[in-house]
């Protein structure tokens, strides 16, 4: 026998329903609250959106408390320039020598020549034109290297996995899909849209994050490293962040 649950309380019965279907549908149950991991994911996306708007100088939303980007702080410039040239490769760990050498050059050369010159148009700082205090922004785009190992990254192991990214093999650019975050240029555009300064060196890996197709990107800034998990379709006009920035200790 089919049990007919009552129409939910507090709702006036706006329509006669001789079929009883309305009550059956109402009795299918509530899905419950949004899962915590999804709440975190969307909060991260909203934070990235906010950061992106501020960084892009979007006048649609004018921040009430405009925050100067960390990398633009006067006094950190010298240390930051050194970070690009010297410290970043050291922080990145014990990766292949070729990659380290590439990143330490701080230019657009990388494991993928296809990334050369990528995002040059976005080389200006988040506040618009590069400031005189930040020579890095004016120097051009940071190195970006992209692997496609298919690693299954997880939210619980992300920072550990990010640190070991460099020990994994790097595939040829030609095997990677163009025009999205699985392409060095697309990944750079994606990260720039998320507020990552164009000069920051990036090591990316195409895999999955908590079972979802993703590109995990390790970004080195002047105050340390952060890891992002972005959608494979993330690009400059459609920034899709799944997680991050997560500081890598």
């Amino acid at each position: 026998m089919v049990t007919t649950p009552p129409v939910p309380p507090g709702r006036p019965d706006e329509q006669d329903d001789p079929t009883g279907i309305r009550a059956l549908l109402a009795g299918l149950g509530d899905p419950g609250p949004m899962p915590a991991d999804l709440v975190d994911r969307i909060n991260a996306s909203i934070a990235a959106e906010q950061q992106s708007r501020s960084a892009a100088g979007d006048r649609t939303v004018v921040p009430l408390r405009r925050r100067r980007p960390l990398w633009a702080k006067v006094g950190l410039v010298a240390a930051a320039v050194a970070a690009v040239a010297v410290a970043v490769p050291a922080m990145l760990g014990t990766g292949p020598g070729e990659l380290m050498a590439s990143l330490s050059r701080g230019g657009s050369s990388s494991a993928h020549d296809a990334s050369a010159g990528a995002a040059k148009s976005s080389a200006s700082g988040p506040e618009g034109a590069p400031t005189g205090a930040d020579s890095r922004a004016a120097a051009g785009t940071g190195a970006i290297a992209l692997a496609s190992t298919g690693t299954a990254y997880t939210s619980t192991e992300l920072t550990r996995q990010a640190r070991s990214m460099l020990s994994q093999g790097f595939s040829a650019a030609s095997s990677l899909k163009a025009d999205a975050a699985t392409n060095p240029q697309g990944l750079r555009g994606c990260l720039t849209a998320l507020g990552v300064a164009p000069w920051m060196p990036v090591v990316g890996d195409v895999g999955t994050y908590d079972g979802r197709p993703a590109v995990v990107a390790l970004v080195s800034g002047d105050t340390g490293q952060n890891v992002y998990a972005v959608g494979r379709d993330c690009d400059a006009t459609h920034p899709v962040v799944i997680a991050g920035p997560v500081p890598v200790p």
Binding site: I42, N43, I46, V61, V62
Partner: peptide, 25 residues
């Protein structure tokens, strides 16, 4: 949010996320 308050949209999300999750599901 439109005026640039960085926290306003987060509050909207907090307030309505469960209902939006329910309708999406």
């Amino acid at each position: 949010h439109l005026a640039g308050d960085p926290d306003a949209f987060g509050e909207l999300f907090r307030r309505h996320r469960d209902r939006m999750w329910a309708v999406a599901l």
